[in-house]
Simulated assay, not measured.
Amino acid sequence: MSLPISPNQPYRVEFCRSMLSPKYWPSWLAVGMMVLLAYLPHRVRYWMARGLARVIRPFCKKPFRIARANLGACFPDMSEAETEAILKKMMFNFSLVGLSMGVLAVKSRKHLEKHIAIKGLEHIERARDQGKPIVFLVPHLWGIEYAGARLSSWGLPMMGMVKHHKNPVFNWLSVRQRCRFGGTVYHRDAGLRTLVQGLRRGESFFYLPDQDHGPEKSIFADFFATQKATLPVIGRLANCGGATVLPLTIGIDKERGNMTMEVFEALDLGTKLSKEAEASLLNHQLERLIGAHPEQYMWFLKVLHTRPEGAKLLYR
């Protein structure tokens, strides 16, 4: 049972007996499979992911069409063979992460510390020494949930926004997973004010600037070989919350199952920075963070849905 949603209050989901109804037995079976997969050796999940990627690819024609459009716009000189190699690796990473999600639900803090390394920890420690919360600038990478869990397990108070699942079993599991190591979640309808207030309480969070929020408040700025509509709001968020903005990326070693999260130096997003300059800075950082692991980016997202006037629409 999910508790009523109210502004500024954490979103909580309590286990209730109705979740054991027969109509939810398939959901519990899926949860059981997820837990079982979490305790299998990584090498087993690796080979399962290779097979799964080949099986589900024929059913992913639309996501692949979107991914090809994104890659074609961002890298017009990329050959067909190079594009296909990235798409193949993207599908494998999707399958591997999907088969491994149970790790975040059941494995211990020590397990995460062993398998997820943090580079650039000095930037986080500097912000904490200054008494500042952190807004992590991160694109939609497959390992993003692991990065959040690792930071929480390290002792950094993290908050996140969640969408309500219609299935109460998955809703309960999703919230429980994100709060295991001390994280706090809010419903995404809570709004930006809740994030600012969380920052003022010392909580940190991930900001994903690659989302397309439409043309109304977005600014077009260079993004690889094209232009992307970007919402220049992170500077105001950080300034209102007294936070430091640190770019972050995470890469998966598919052979060994280990991950490396890298945190970079703080961005200068002072109040004097114009919206155009901020959008340009954000897109430049996205290029760097995505470029570190291009095959692990979610290229099937419609990140280029909003186009400059006169530009060709990509997803028709």
Rank of each mutant, 00 (worst) to 15 (best):
A81G: 08
T184F: 00
G251K: 03
Y46S: 08
M159F: 03
M78C: 07
K23S: 13
N258E: 12
L313M: 05
S100N: 13
V13P: 07
M33G: 14
A277F: 04
M259Y: 09
I144Q: 07
I118Y: 00
T244A: 12
P157C: 04
I66N: 01
W25V: 11
I144N: 01
L96S: 09
P41W: 09
G143E: 05
D189T: 15
A266R: 06
A81T: 15
G183T: 07
H111K: 08
L137Q: 00
T244E: 12
G131A: 07
I252S: 05
D268A: 14
S108R: 11
Q130M: 11
T306A: 02
D253Q: 04
S2Q: 13
A67V: 09
K61G: 10
V175T: 09
W154C: 04
E309W: 00
A229R: 00
A311C: 07
G120M: 02
I134D: 02
K107C: 14
L301A: 03
L156F: 01
H164E: 14
F224W: 06
I118F: 02
Q227W: 00
I66G: 04
E113W: 11
S153Y: 00
F181D: 03
R50F: 08
Q285P: 05
V245P: 04
K132C: 07
Y315N: 06
L237N: 04
S100C: 13
I250W: 00
K254I: 15
I56D: 10
R150I: 06
S18N: 10
G131M: 07
L301Y: 14
A117K: 12
G214R: 02
D189A: 12
K110C: 10
S218D: 01
R256V: 10
M161Y: 06
D253K: 06
A229V: 05
G270W: 07
N70P: 06
G102Q: 07
K272N: 15
G202V: 10
A311D: 09
K114R: 15
H111A: 12
E80H: 09
K272I: 13
I66R: 04
M1S: 13
Y207H: 08
E295N: 09
L237Y: 03
D77T: 15
M90W: 02
H164C: 02
V263Y: 00
P4V: 10
G191E: 08
I250E: 00
Y24T: 05
S153C: 08
A105R: 06
G214Q: 02
G310I: 01
R288G: 04
P26Q: 10
Q227F: 00
F59A: 14
Q197T: 11
M91N: 13
M90K: 03
I66A: 05
S100E: 13
T184N: 03
W47S: 14
T306Q: 01
R109C: 12
A238N: 04
K163H: 12
M33A: 14
P4R: 10
P168V: 07
L269G: 06
T306Y: 01
I5M: 09
F59C: 12
L112P: 07
E14S: 13
T249G: 05
F300S: 12
L304D: 03
K166H: 11
E295S: 14
G257I: 10
R54V: 15
T226V: 08
G310A: 02
L173H: 03
L36D: 06
C240L: 15
K254F: 06
L199W: 01
